[in-house]
Design a protein around this nucleic acid. Structure first.
Lengths: 155, 155
DNA sequence: TAGTACGTACAGAATATACCGTACGCACTA
DNA sequence: TAGTGCGTACGGTATATTCTGTACGTACTA
C-alpha cells in the first residue's frame, strides 16, 4: 500500500532536499523547511511534534541553524516558551554561506600551493607542473570570488 | 610529540578540505587530491598504499569519482592494471557540478511551491503568504541559474 | 518557600557509514 | 589447461552520527 503524499508533504520534502544540498543534516534541513513554510514562529515542542523527533534533537538542530544565522528566536508577549522562525530568504542566505566557504577555502588552497611550489627547485621538471596547477587553482579561486560577488550583491 | 607535517601533506590536506566542501566523502576527497597533485596516473594499489586504505575502499571511491566525471581511466601500454588520473581543472568542475545540482533542485522546489499554492484558496490569508514565498523561491532559482551560467561560461 | 514549566547537558541506544579481508570471476599467459 | 594477476562483490566489523529519555538548573508563580 502506497503512502498518501499530500502537496504539503511534497513541498516540505523538496525544501528539505534543498537544505541537504547545502550540507545541512536531515533534521536541520527538515526543520528549516517547516519553519519556512509555517507562517508563525514555533516552539521547540511544536517542532518536535511536527517532525516527529525528540525535543533534544530539535534543540540541537535549532542551535546549529541559529549558529549559522538561518533561524531567529522571536519574543512573544506573555509566553514563557522560546519561539523560533526562519530568517528572510533563508535559502538564498544558505547559498551565500556556502559560496563564502568556497571563497575562504580556495584562498587557503592557493596559499598551500604557492608554499609547496616554492619548495620545488626551479630546474625540477615538477616545477613547471606545479606552476600550471597553481595557475589553475588561482583561476578556480577567481571563479569562487566572482560568484561570491554576484551572490552578495543580491542579498 | 607533535607530528611533523610536510608541505606536501599540508597541500593534500587543503585540497582534501576543498573536496569535502563539495560533499565528497573524506576518502573520495583525499583520493582526488592525490590524483590532482601526482603527475602521472596511479593504479588502485598505488593509491591504496598512498592514502593508507584498503584496495576495496579505493575501488569504491574511484567508482564514485568516476561516476561524477572527476576521474578518468587511462590506458597504459603493456600494463594490465587500470590507471586513473583526475580530469583537467577538477575543482572547477566540482564547483560546476554542485551549482548544477542547485539549479535542478531549485527548479523542483519552485514547482512544488506552485502546486501547493494552487491548492490554497485565493481568499485564504495563507494565499498571499504563499505568493510571497513563491516569489522569494523564484528569486532563489534565478540566482542559482545566474551562477550556473557564469560557471559554465568558463569551463 | 514549594511548585511548575521550560531549556539543555549527558549517557547510552540505535542507526547509518565507512572499512577491511576474503573470495570469486574474468582475462591473459605459458 | 593450469596458473597468475587483476578488479570487484560480499559479509562482517568498526567507527561515527544521530536520537532518545532522564535528569538537572533556572526562572517564574502562587
Amino acid at each position: 500500500m502506497k503512502a498518501q503524499t499530500s502537496l504539503y508533504d511534497s513541498l516540505i520534502m523538496e525544501l528539505t532536499r534543498t537544505g541537504e544540498l547545502f550540507r545541512l543534516s536531515a533534521t536541520e534541513a527538515r526543520l528549516l523547511a517547516v519553519l519556512y513554510v509555517e507562517n508563525h514562529s514555533q516552539t521547540l515542542d511544536q517542532m518536535a511534534n511536527i517532525i516527529g523527533k525528540s525535543k533534544t534533537a530539535v534543540n540541537i538542530a535549532i542551535r546549529n541553524l541559529s549558529h549559522l544565522g538561518l533561524v531567529d528566536r522571536v519574543w512573544v508577549k506573555g509566553e514563557r516558551k522560546d519561539f523560533y522562525t526562519s530568517v528572510n530568504s533563508v535559502y538564498s542566505k544558505l547559498m551565500t554561506l556556502q559560496v563564502k566557504q568556497w571563497h575562504t577555502q580556495t584562498t587557503r588552497q592557493v596559499e598551500a600551493m604557492e608554499q609547496f611550489k616554492q619548495a620545488v627547485p626551479k630546474d625540477d621538471p615538477q616545477w613547471q607542473q606545479m606552476q600550471e596547477k597553481l595557475t589553475s587553482s588561482l583561476q578556480f579561486h577567481e571563479q569562487a570570488a566572482g560568484i561570491l560577488k554576484k551572490v552578495t550583491a543580491i542579498s
